[in-house]
Write a protein that binds this DNA or RNA. Structure first.
Length: 439
DNA sequence: TCTGGGGTCCTAGGACCC
DNA sequence: TCTGGGGTCCTAGGACCC
């Protein structure tokens, strides 16, 4: 059996936790740049505020209905997430952290719990809420897809009290009959349209389809979903592996056309991506730089520029990567375009100790020339390691300037295109200056 | 005025191999 | 006129997830 633990309105409840005066009130959290609504408290949902709606479209409505609005505070959410996940890990040995607010649990090795899954799941819910203050819903089923379905029911139907265990076949069928196909894990907007066209509207209608037919029309992934609905497990618990690609990108708070400004933004993204790359002990062979104009702009056509390069010797050195990115940008840069977003992508990653050396690179001379080249490489690594160490020690919040950085990134406080987060809450749990005070 | 960011997996088609 | 069979690797694009 699998369980899915999902935090309710996670970002909104992180904010409410430190603002008890907002309990039961409508609260929403916005995406970066205060763009879209990405989380809503129950009261905000009840007001009819939709997920992912652009904030400017509901701003007046929110003001009129006393909705409290927050910018995204990822420092806070990441810390609260860690507390929830480590609490779960103390209660179950096989946990897959699926996203910032969700975890799958594998319950097969838990014979004691098998006797009464409902009691086990209820206890789990109670402990998580007691230890972290974050309310959760729990769904249990014989496959991950069924656990997801159960979780959806636990959230939707108050009678479940936030815990839904799918054991009896008649229950499973009933739930599938009353659940819309678009609420199923693995069915997005496109598939919904195509499934509807085939006369499939409920989860149950998909479950009774011939899996081979589904494969023919939609591919192997939806076929597996179909099999999982019938109790045949196709998706196992997965454990973290190194990322295969690393992206850092962000929209600007205003349009950017100037080449130097664009370059500073790209360099800052290189620094972020390179830090993540080193954190997972990897190096990259491939770097791409991109910038886009706004797809919503009426005044000019959508423009996207991008360029890629290969590193003969895979690297994680910020300086090497930044130099390459700046050169790339100068070859792809187009004037008179209002860029709305820029970023970098690192791919073709491998472990730093499994690097394939270049047959023709001068590095091969290392042994012959004595220690000079090797010393040089070591020195370069030591510099980057020192920068990482200093930045870790003097860790500012995310989105603040690092303690030590490369000049090409520019000075953050002087960059007027930086992301705007006008409604940011304090970092209650990670910054001593922001710690809540009891009067 | 104002529309997020970061990932994964699968498939089809082309280039190439013997 | 007629043009093999079986395979790998790479890439772009499309779908999905949160």
């Amino acid at each position: 059996m699998y369980a899915l633990v999902d935090c309710n309105s996670f970002y909104a409840n992180c904010e409410i936790l430190f603002r008890p005066d907002l309990k039961g009130k409508p609260v929403i959290v916005l995406s970066n740049n205060d763009g879209c609504v990405v989380a809503r408290s129950s009261a905000a949902k009840a007001l009819g505020i939709k997920m992912a709606v652009p904030y400017f479209q509901v701003k007046d409505f929110c003001a009129a209905h006393q909705v409290t609005v927050f910018s995204s505070n990822y420092t806070l959410y990441a810390d609260m997430s860690q507390r929830v996940m480590s609490t779960i890990e103390t209660l179950c040995p096989a946990v897959e952290v699926y996203s910032i607010d969700e975890a799958f649990l594998y319950l097969a090795d838990y014979p004691a719990a098998m006797k009464d899954l409902k009691a086990y799941a209820s206890k789990l819910k109670q402990i998580i809420e007691q230890y972290t203050g974050i309310p959760v819903s729990i769904g249990v089923g014989s496959t991950k897809t069924l656990a997801k379905l159960a979780n959806h029911a636990a959230k939707k139907y108050p009678a479940t009290k936030g815990v839904c265990v799918l054991e009896q076949l008649t229950w499973i069928r009933r739930l599938m009959q009353i659940t819309d196909i678009s609420d199923l894990w693995g069915v997005g907007r496109r598939y919904k349209t195509r499934l509807n066209a085939m006369g499939i509207y409920t989860v149950h209608q998909l479950a009774i389809c011939e899996p081979a037919k589904i494969r023919q029309h939609f591919g192997v992934v939806l076929e597996r979903t179909c099999l999982e609905l019938n109790g045949q497990s196709c998706f196992d618990i997965e454990y973290p592996v190194s990322k295969q690609q690393i992206v850092s990108s962000r929209s600007f708070s205003r349009c950017v056309s100037d080449k130097e400004e664009l370059s500073e933004a790209v360099c800052a993204h290189v620094a972020t991506a390179a830090r993540k790359l080193r954190a997972q002990q990897s190096v990259c062979r491939h770097l791409s730089v991109f910038a886009l104009s706004s797809p919503f702009a009426q005044t000019q056509p959508f423009t996207a520029i991008s360029g890629q390069c290969q590193f003969v010797t895979p690297t994680a050195d910020t300086r090497v990567m930044m130099l390459a990115a700046r050169q790339l940008l100068s070859t792809i840069y187009k004037e008179d375009v209002d860029y709305a977003k820029a970023g970098v992508m690192l791919s073709d990653l491998c472990r730093h100790d499994e690097v394939q050396l270049d047959l023709f690179a001068e590095k091969g001379d290392e042994q012959q020339e004595g220690k000079t080249k090797a010393d040089d490489t070591q020195k370069k690594r030591a510099v980057i390691a020192l920068i990482d160490e200093l930045n870790k020690k003097h860790a500012p919040n995310r989105n603040q300037q690092a303690a030590v950085f490369i000049a090409s990134e520019g000075i953050k406080s002087k960059q007027s295109w930086q992301m705007s987060r006008a409604l940011l809450s304090p970092c209650y749990t990670t910054d001593i200056k922001h710690i809540p005070k009891v009067q």
